[in-house]
Design a protein around this nucleic acid. Structure first.
Lengths: 247, 247
DNA sequence: CGGTTATTTGACCGACTTCAACTGCAGTGG
DNA sequence: CCACTGCAGTTGAAGTCGGTCAAATAACCG
């Protein structure tokens, strides 16, 4: 029903680097064995060693940080095709958590194997690095979302981002894509309370720009939503993708 | 009066990797020629090519993002010894601005030279990568600051971070270090208004935990400040440094 | 010293929070 | 089949943190 697992990551990488068959095969090796994780499960927690990378095959995960009193911040959403913590082995221990927000399929790859594949395929090495830097760019935009935009703008902006990122891996059909988050997760992503998020989300749906239901989000009017959010996709570094969307 | 320029970067790197003399010399080559930038000057703007790295020799700069209506968010503060945008050449264009917050000394290094030195000195290559990942970790903590902590906690947390980072490059004496920011900059860092920041900053000074004056910030009671901020320095990945502070 | 910029203060307003209750829905077991 | 349970979503009321506007100091700089 969805693209076969390896394709999402390969699709993202080939936005910047055309891939040869051996390179595709190497990527395929990463996701040969996947495992299912249930919503709420923490795959990796702050303080643990950074010895594994994770590839999201299906579902939605998040990088999170917690405060002692239970406050929780989502730092970025991890979508199918995302390669998480590759190259992070230059640091010893994690400083954040990797948490499943929905039932998801992931492939867990030891850093040593990522390094081996990188050594054999220099362009993959560079591509992995690029993915890490793009995630950093997404987190920087996230700061802007949380720090400067009000809840409505921030929500609209987040939905735009998800649309572009899901589209880049072929997971958008007629403006709709899987969206399994609870409102509490959205609230923790934007740094507002769940109650306030609920009201703002209702308001946004009333505008008719988006509809939601059954764990699916539909962007009805992308250009209207982009305007509401002042969304500019440059920070996603999608380059060759979404040329149809940017019009 | 301060450490000689190259020492700050070398000091940070040697927290993780002991450096040989040739490696130190290579770093010294980066900062042989520096230039002065005045407060408010934008060294590099979003949309420009990512073809240079910048080393902060003295002063304070910031990575910033702007919204069309003038709202401004500071994404991270760049201190002496920081190596900015090394390795970022895997991406084509900047998505943020590099702005001087005070009169500063910086060295501008073409990405090609960073790459050459990295090729000659593999451990420097890895060290540059590590610096980039540490900055990403700092930005992630920044999201938590802006999204979950209130203004007082966030301000105390930021001051703790600065103390640790300045200490790691030998720029702290008796709890005091150079702090040339305007309150407007602090406000843009925390995502609050300058008026509110002013009141909160006054309140924090009234607690006696910190004092400020003459572009200098003094942490009077670090452990008290850490408690107020619930500060945990793990995310700075300082490893061997600050062992005296962590007590 | 004059002109500019940064900080401080006051008054008022609005976005967002908190607490609490209620609805709707899906799963479970009797 | 229907109660029971639990969780996500929705709604209301009251309060607070932080925003805005505006003006008054205070510090800085040529």
């Amino acid at each position: 029903m969805n693209l076969a697992p390896p394709d999402a990551l390969a699709a993202k990488i080939s936005l910047h680097t055309p891939l040869t068959d051996p390179e595709r095969a190497a990527l395929g090796g990463f996701v040969r064995r996947t495992q299912t994780v249930l919503p709420g499960v923490t795959l990796a927690a702050a303080g643990e060693p950074l010895d594994i990378a994770t590839i999201v095959v299906d579902g939605m995960l998040a990088r999170t940080k917690m405060l002692r009193d239970g406050r929780r911040q989502i730092l970025s959403l991890l979508l199918p095709g995302d390669l998480v913590d590759a190259h992070a082995s230059v640091l010893k221990t994690r400083d954040d958590n990797l948490e499943a927000l929905s039932r998801s399929e992931v492939a867990i790859v030891p850093q040593s194997r990522v390094a081996e594949v990188g050594a054999q395929h220099p362009r993959l090495h560079e591509a992995f690095l690029r993915e890490a830097f793009i995630e950093a760019a997404i987190v920087r935009e996230w700061v802007l979302n949380v720090g400067q935009r009000n809840a409505m703008e921030a929500l609209a902006h987040l939905f735009c981002e998800l649309h572009y990122r899901m589209n880049a891996v072929g997971r958008v059909a007629k403006g709709a894509f899987a969206f399994p988050l609870r409102q509490q997760d959205l609230a923790d992503a934007l740094g507002v309370s769940a109650v306030h998020l609920n009201r703002v989300f209702l308001q946004l749906r009333e505008t008719g720009l988006v509809t939601a239901g059954g764990k699916t989000l539909t962007i009805v009017d992308l250009s209207g939503l982009r305007q509401a959010a002042h969304f500019d996709s440059d920070y996603l570094h999608l380059d060759r993708a979404n040329t149809a969307l940017s019009a």
